[in-house]
């Protein structure tokens, strides 16, 4: 259960690296859009294009345009899994 008194911390996991590096977390502003943190990570990891990528945490899709609080992450330590969604199957 998120604790409002605790800091909200996040880490981004991709196949191009983790942000912050290793098993560290970054303290984020709970009132800031999640996309701000994601953009920082994408820049740091030098990922050039994230069109069609999806953000998942705890098995559910996360809307990066929402603030941390709106997604229920206030006071939580969040690991965000970021990567491309599968392309449409060819059904050859």
């Amino acid at each position: 259960m998120p604790d409002e008194k605790k800091l909200t911390e996040a880490r981004l996991e991709t196949t191009s690296g983790s942000y912050p590096e290793g098993d560290k977390f970054k303290v984020v502003k709970p009132t800031e859009a999640i996309s701000v943190f994601v953009a920082e990570g994408v820049k740091e990891l030098k990922i050039t294009n994230t069109n069609g990528w999806v953000l998942v945490a705890g098995g559910r899709k996360i809307d990066p345009s929402k603030i941390w609080e709106q997604e229920g992450f206030l006071g939580a330590k969040v690991v965000l899994d970021y990567g491309p969604d599968h392309s449409g199957g060819g059904n050859a």
Binding site: T14, T15, S16, I47, T48, N49, T50, N51, G52, W53, V54, G83, P84, D85, H86, S87
Partner: peptide, 15 residues
């Protein structure tokens, strides 16, 4: 492209 490098392809199949 990032979605079609090695990690991107594996990620797509995994999803």
């Amino acid at each position: 492209t990032p979605e079609f490098n090695l990690g991107g392809i594996v990620t797509q199949i995994w999803r």
